[in-house]
Design a protein around this nucleic acid. Structure first.
Lengths: 201, 201
DNA sequence: GCTTATCCGGAAAGCTTTTCCGTATAGTTA
DNA sequence: TAACTATACGGAAAAGCTTTCCGGATAAGC
């Protein structure tokens, strides 16, 4: 560990870093995939994605050997974005508000990205790591928000971050022909349950 | 329209009833599909199903023009079985017990049949009718159980049959690597919330 | 037993994903 | 700057799955 390779700890044998064109293509693919998945669902043909990204299919499959790898990468990237939103909210609002806002943000993610629910319930072992990733990234974020709100007396913690995270993830996953407010309503019920008083008649 | 067509009321123009070999094949296909879906998931190749059923692919696709039609049929059939369980439970147990037992039955269905969650969240419009079917078949069943339990004073109805049905369906949908008791625990939380008293400390 | 509407099986067509490999190029060294 | 090489690219071809098609079989009615 002399100088430039900051993280040559032992973890990764990775010899050299990626060529810049390769890096650019990966980026373009992820962006294109996000767009196409939103428009046409995660089952959209790979061709559509490569065309939009302006690369050949070979390039797609070199970086993401399985179709599921691409889906996984897109989802993980959106989970990261969700986690990154927490500190800013915590800094800008009172604990109770910050918690509510962040839950809104997370709810929107789950409700909007159909691909997430589809992947989770697909049964494909390729996605088995996703709940773990979610927990690992979002668990601490939610936990710190919960703790702050508890400390300020705005809520009583009666549920673990993990249980709450999963409950929201499941309740807000969109079902066809569903009242679009169902998820939000159920989460509100849950969160109301956390406020100090009794149940709201 | 002279005599023999016993039910020429106006409802159905259906000229004659299905040939017996056709009926038998449909039955065999549904049974085989149920087995294969359980073992290998709903994405298992059609060939596996037709082989197990002992028919050609042509036969499969005549009766179920789209792959999704077969999945839909298998799921609807299991929903029916769930609905049919309600009257027997209501007759055999006190209202509160009957309700709990039926929710167990429903929970087991949702938790066990991965195909159900997969279909619901797939985004494929072919499955858009499924929540409606669920509600139509299971709504009345649950509603009568809820009413009986409310009438006998065992619970206070604070949630509609529809909301409860969907909440259970969503909370119990299995996620990979999840505590296998998570769903049951969450449903217990919900049902406890319906009992007359306050929240159980 | 004969007729005919209905159904069957599996070959082939149509798509999508995934592999493969000759060609192109970024990065490096002199 | 020029040459060299490891790395990456593109798209044709292979592989696998779903869906269509149709000549041949057969249950149902007379």
């Amino acid at each position: 560990m002399s100088d430039n390779t900051a993280e040559s700890t032992a973890r990764e044998r990775a010899p050299r870093r990626m060529r810049t064109d390769a890096r650019r293509n990966v980026e373009a693919l992820l962006e294109a995939a996000k767009t196409v998945f939103s428009a046409a669902g995660v089952d959209a043909p790979a061709k559509e994605i490569t065309d939009l990204a302006g690369v050949g299919v070979g390039t797609l499959y070199r970086h993401f050997p399985q179709r599921s790898d691409l889906i996984k990468a897109v989802i993980e990237r959106e989970i990261d974005a969700c986690a990154d939103a927490a500190p800013a909210l915590a800094a800008a609002h009172e604990p109770g508000i910050a918690l509510a806002r962040w839950l809104d943000r997370f709810t929107a993610f789950v409700a909007t990205k159909r691909g997430f629910a589809a992947a989770l319930h697909s049964g494909d072992p390729a996605f088995d790591g996703l709940p773990g990733y979610l927990m690992q990234k979002l668990g601490p974020a939610l936990e710190s928000l919960l703790e702050a709100a508890t400390a300020s007396g705005e809520i009583q913690t009666r549920i673990s971050a993990q249980d709450l995270l999963y409950a929201v993830a499941k309740l807000c996953a969109p079902m066809p022909n569903e009242d679009p407010d169902y998820g939000r309503r159920m989460v509100a019920l849950l969160v109301d349950g956390l406020r100090s008083g009794e149940s709201p008649h």
